[in-house]
Every structure is written in structure tokens, then in C-alpha cells.
Amino acid sequence: MKIIRSRDFTGSHAWEALDIASMNGITTRLHWTDQPYRWHVNDGEEVFVVLDGEIQMRYRENGQEQVAVLKVGDIFYASVGTEHVAHPLGVARVLVVESKGSV
């Protein structure tokens, strides 16, 4: 059993993660960042929940780049093959649920 106060987690570098759980090949991690990630496609599905701050999520749909601003409580679901990149607007904390070892 553990209680995690997400607002207390601060990384020493962008996208630093705190491993929360690994269950049946699925990981749940808390990330802290103040810098964009990189364009990527995960090995499986991904659920991305904004816990603190705002994220400009860029993704490609039918070959066209789309942009959505995610605020606290918003969830981004990346299906298999969804190319995407997260750009925080300042400091952000996000909960990511994905296949273990995924990009």
C-alpha cells in the first residue's frame, strides 16, 4: 500500500518517472516534466492523464497533425499506431498507463 501525492513529485530532468505499479505487463508511472517529449508511437495502447499543469498534445490523424490542449483531469488515449508528442505548457505532472517497456 502506498499513497502518492503527485504534486510533491518533482523530477531532476524532463520526463523523470516514479514507478507506481506493474500489473500483468502494464505499467503505471507518474511523470514530471517541463520539456516536450519526442514524436513516437507506443508498442501498445497508452492512457495519459494530466494531474497538474497543461499539456499541448500533438498527434497525427489521417496524416494531418492535430493539437489539443489537455488540462488537469483530461485524458488522452493513444490507440495502437497513434503517433503523438506531449508539449507541457510550463511544469506538468502526468500519469501514464502503458505496456511495460513501451516508449
Rank of each mutant, 00 (worst) to 15 (best):
K2T: 03
V47A: 15
V69L: 15
H40P: 07
I26W: 03
V94K: 06
V91I: 14
V97S: 08
W39S: 05
L95Y: 05
A92H: 10
V91G: 04
I20E: 13
Q66E: 14
R60D: 09
M1K: 10
V50S: 09
V96K: 00
V67F: 00
R38Y: 03
G90Q: 09
N24T: 02
W39D: 12
V97Y: 02
E45N: 04
E61C: 03
V85E: 05
T33D: 00
L51Y: 08
V80P: 04
H87A: 05
T10K: 13
L30P: 11
V50D: 04
I3F: 14
S99P: 05
D34H: 14
E16Q: 15
F76S: 01
R60Y: 11
D8H: 12
H13C: 02
G44E: 06
V72F: 07
G73S: 07
D52R: 14
H87S: 06
Q64R: 15
E65V: 14
N62D: 14
D34E: 14
S6I: 01
T27L: 00
P36C: 07
A68W: 05
H13T: 01
T82W: 04
V47H: 01
V49P: 00
E45T: 08
H84C: 03
D43V: 13
E65Y: 00
H87M: 05
H40A: 12
G25Q: 08
E83N: 02
N62H: 14
A21P: 00
H31S: 13
E16T: 08
G44H: 06
A14H: 13
A86P: 10
W32H: 13
N62C: 04
R7G: 02
R5K: 13
S12M: 09
V94P: 11
I75V: 15
V47S: 11
Q35P: 00
K71Q: 14
A17T: 08
T10A: 06
R29N: 12
L89C: 05
V103R: 11
S99M: 10
H31I: 11
L30F: 06
G73I: 03
Q35G: 09
E83D: 07
T27A: 03
P88C: 04
H40E: 15
E46D: 05
T82P: 00
P88R: 04
L30G: 13
Y37D: 15
K100C: 02
P36L: 09
V94W: 00
I55N: 03
T28W: 06
V91S: 11
V47T: 06
S102R: 07
F48L: 07
K2G: 09
Y59K: 01
D52W: 11
N62F: 12
A17I: 02
D43M: 10
V85C: 13
V67Q: 12
